[in-house]
Nucleic acid binder design. Structure first.
Lengths: 232, 232
DNA sequence: TCAAAAGTGTTGTGTGTACACCCATGT
DNA sequence: ACATGGGTGTACACACAACACTTTTGA
């Protein structure tokens, strides 16, 4: 049985959260997956997530699950969509609220835990078979991410505090799967007045060092009023 | 108690759906509200909605609740957001999945039912005190509606099958709370190639009759590739 | 003939797009 | 001196924004 009734007569349901965590590593957009230890889909890869507890908010549950499987805390999770079909889960009815987030690879540490034997990053372009309807959730998250990239500064979360414009452009190109014009990209980004050039330079080997910039806004910024960024 | 545990050990929660139904009547953007018959918030106005049943999908529950309180079926509901704070509902924990939709006033019939003694339309600019956090849900729905208007044809749902360009412009103006330039609006709409002029005219009294148009696409259309409609 | 809304074009301005070369550094 | 990525400006096309008058009808 998937649903029960309580004393006040309301049907009750198990609620899960699932998190699509993106990063860029080695020039590739990747998603964090964990290997399932329990049936159903035992041994299959799945999104990190789990069941919402009795007294926690759904947002908190998503954060908690992510923290249990990674060392990342203090992350900005954005709610994606709620999937409420009765037959998503073979065990019975589980409604899932999905989230997505972006993390910078450098600041990131994996940490194995409890039910999770393995966690690993997979390129979004070559995902393994996923448990449940998680493939659909990843696809939806990617679509949303690409959209948001166009009118917010969400993509900056993939970068360290100080970054070069080439690194920023690289992040956009990897997410959009599309090459962008260097001059137009730099002009547009600098015109937004959300970047501050530092006096430091990144020495990258045997080339000219690149100026490091910082993001001056405290939070992700909506850009619609300042001008939409796409399509370069 | 708000949550219980079932045999498989999962915490379970009551799930509600709430629907923000918009229409335009007498040149005003309005929202459908129902008067609560039961505590909590007995006598207060609230969004139409209710508890998701054991075997129905969340989307279906939203449609069902709307049909129980109106005569409208076959409507396009769009999922808005899931509110999962533990203390939204004084009875205990209820997670709500919110939806919004637009209907054409003419095609609409109200129908009183069951727990609902009254249902009525209220201007979004002058809402009464709402039960729970429903005011916040309405605000969020309106924000989303205004955004979507800019890159989809969602606004067409407010109009009958055949409509004049002036009526279409009026719908946009009412939702955006902003006057638009007649010539620019008409040019942009016609350039999108989603309208077909009929050979009929609407006689509006003692003025020149206006040509009636139909929307040629079967569904709501995303316009991003064809060009964003805002800000006129 | 008058009132009231329908309908129609042009011009200036800003933004997106395409495109090629010199610069600074390490080896 | 050469290889590598960093960094810069201009010209064209197109879309948006502002703006006023004529047309058609009913009363």
């Amino acid at each position: 049985m998937s649903s029960s009734h309580s004393s006040n007569g309301f049907a009750k349901h198990a609620i899960a959260v699932d998190v699509v965590l993106f990063t860029i590593q080695a020039g590739t957009l990747k998603v964090l997956l964990v290997k399932r230890q329990q049936p159903p889909y035992r041994g299959a890869w799945a999104l990190p997530g789990g069941i919402v507890g009795p007294e926690e908010s759904v947002d908190d549950a998503a954060l908690r699950e992510l923290q249990e499987e990674t060392n990342i805390g203090n992350i900005y999770l954005e709610q994606l969509y709620t999937f409420g079909e009765p037959n998503r889960d073979p065990r019975g009815r589980v409604i899932t609220v999905s989230y997505y987030a972006l993390v910078n690879w450098q600041q990131f540490q994996l940490k194995a835990r409890q039910r999770v034997s393995q966690a690993d990053w997979f390129p979004v372009k070559r995902l393994p078979e996923l448990a449940f309807d998680h493939r659909r959730i990843v696809d939806y998250a990617l679509e949303r991410l690409r959209n948001k990239l166009n009118y917010t500064t969400i993509g900056f979360q993939l970068l360290p505090k100080e970054f070069t414009l080439t690194e920023l452009q690289g992040a956009y190109e990897v997410i959009l799967s599309q090459r962008l014009d260097k001059r137009n990209f730099r002009r547009k980004m600098l015109q937004l007045n959300i970047l501050e050039g530092t006096k430091e330079f990144k020495v990258n080997g045997r080339q000219r060092p690149a100026r490091l910039y910082t993001f001056t806004e405290p939070k992700v910024v909506k850009l619609q009023e300042k001008g939409i960024i796409v399509p370069f």
